[in-house]
């Protein structure tokens, strides 16, 4: 059953990603990216990262992608036009992508035995739940990065406000 879950949602991820690639209107790309995020959330849950699955849904799909959608609608972005830009990206990009996929696939399959197996809902069995585990490490060992990231967000807010401000 774990394998079935994986395959369904894995295919969903890839399909959403390909859809992002092939759609011409950005809003379609954004919506397919939301699908990818959701499917990834399920996959995180199968790997035992419940908190992250929830965070993925709330933060990524619920906030970031919504932001993207807002901006697309705000700017009234239309379909992509064909321009006379360089075609070099196609010639380098597609073979390159295929090459990278092939390479990484080869490596990971080569190491398949050494990597081991995933247990469905890995940490549900243990005494501590996933979230308490995360928070224990986050607020003791890694407290400094945590505080720094909060400052980072503050700076990002300021930057966004300044950059997007209409000139008076």
């Amino acid at each position: 059953m774990a394998l079935a879950l994986f395959i369904i949602f894995g295919v969903l991820c890839v399909a959403g990603a390909l859809n992002l690639l092939f759609q011409r209107h950005p809003i379609n790309s954004a919506l397919s990216l939301v699908v990818v995020m959701m499917a990834l959330a399920v996959i995180y849950w199968t790997l035992g990262a419940e908190f992250l699955a929830a965070a993925q849904v709330i933060v990524y799909s619920g906030a970031i992608m919504v932001l993207f959608t807002f901006v697309i609608m705000l700017l009234n972005a239309g379909e992509e036009e064909r321009t006379t830009g360089s075609k070099a990206a196609y010639f380098v990009g597609i073979p390159g992508v295929a090459g990278i996929i092939a390479l990484l696939t080869y490596i990971f399959l080569h190491e398949k035995a050494a990597l081991g197996y995933a247990r469905l809902g890995g940490s549900l069995d243990t005494a501590t739940s996933n979230i308490s585990e995360i928070s224990r490490v986050l607020f003791t060992d890694l407290l400094l990065p945590f505080e720094v990231t909060s400052i980072l967000i503050l700076v990002a807010i300021l930057g966004a406000v300044v950059l997007a401000r209409r000139e008076q």
């Binding site: 690639l21 199968t46 992508v97 197996y117």
Partner: peptide, 29 residues
């Protein structure tokens, strides 16, 4: 029981598609 390698391969595929669309698409968003 799913081998971890499959998850990694999935991630690799997603990453590569990301690179591909990064290079091909013309709309900045």
């Amino acid at each position: 029981m799913v081998p971890i390698a499959y998850y990694l391969i999935l991630a690799a595929v997603l990453f590569s598609i990301g690179i591909g669309s990064f290079l091909i698409k013309r709309n900045i968003i």
